[in-house]
Simulated scan of single mutants.
Amino acid sequence: MSQIVKGVIARAKGAPVETVNIVVPDPGQGEAVVKILTCGVCHTDLHYREGGINDEFPFLLGHEAAGIVEAVGDDVTDVAPGDFVVLNWRAVCGQCRACKRGEQQYCFDSQNATQKMTIADGEGAGTELSPALGIGAFAEKTLVAAGQCTKVDPQARPAAAGLLGCGVMAGLGAAINTGGAGRGKSLAVIGCGGVGVAAIAGGALAGSMPIIAVDIDAKKLEAATKLGATHTVDSSKVDPVAAIAEICDKYYPGAEGADVVVDAVGIPATWKQAFYARDLAGTVVLVGVPNPGMTVPEIPLGDVFGRGGALKSSWYGDCLPSRDFPMLVDLYRDGRLDLDAFVTEEIGIDDVEAAFEKMHHGDVLRSVVVI
Rank of each mutant, 00 (worst) to 15 (best):
V5G: 01
G7E: 03
A12T: 10
K13E: 14
D26H: 11
Q29N: 14
E31W: 04
V41Q: 08
R49Y: 06
G52Q: 15
N54D: 14
L61M: 04
I68L: 12
V69P: 03
V72F: 08
T77A: 14
T77Y: 07
P81I: 08
A91G: 14
A91C: 11
V92L: 09
Q95F: 10
G102I: 05
S110F: 12
T114Y: 13
E123V: 15
T127A: 10
F138N: 04
F138R: 06
F138Q: 04
A139S: 14
E140G: 13
K141P: 09
A145E: 10
D153S: 12
Q155I: 11
G162H: 05
L164I: 08
G165C: 06
G167D: 13
V168T: 04
V168E: 03
G171W: 00
A181G: 13
G182L: 07
C192W: 09
V195C: 02
V197M: 11
G207N: 06
I211A: 05
D215T: 08
D215P: 07
I216W: 00
D217R: 13
D217K: 13
E222L: 09
A224S: 12
T225V: 14
V233T: 06
V238P: 02
E246W: 11
I247P: 01
Y252R: 11
P253H: 11
E256P: 06
D263W: 00
A269S: 15
F275I: 10
Y276D: 04
A277I: 09
R278H: 08
A281R: 14
G282F: 02
V287F: 02
P292E: 05
P297G: 03
D303S: 13
G306W: 03
S313G: 15
D324K: 02
L328P: 00
V352D: 02
E357V: 15
H361K: 15
V364D: 05
V364P: 05
R366Q: 05
V368W: 02
V370D: 06
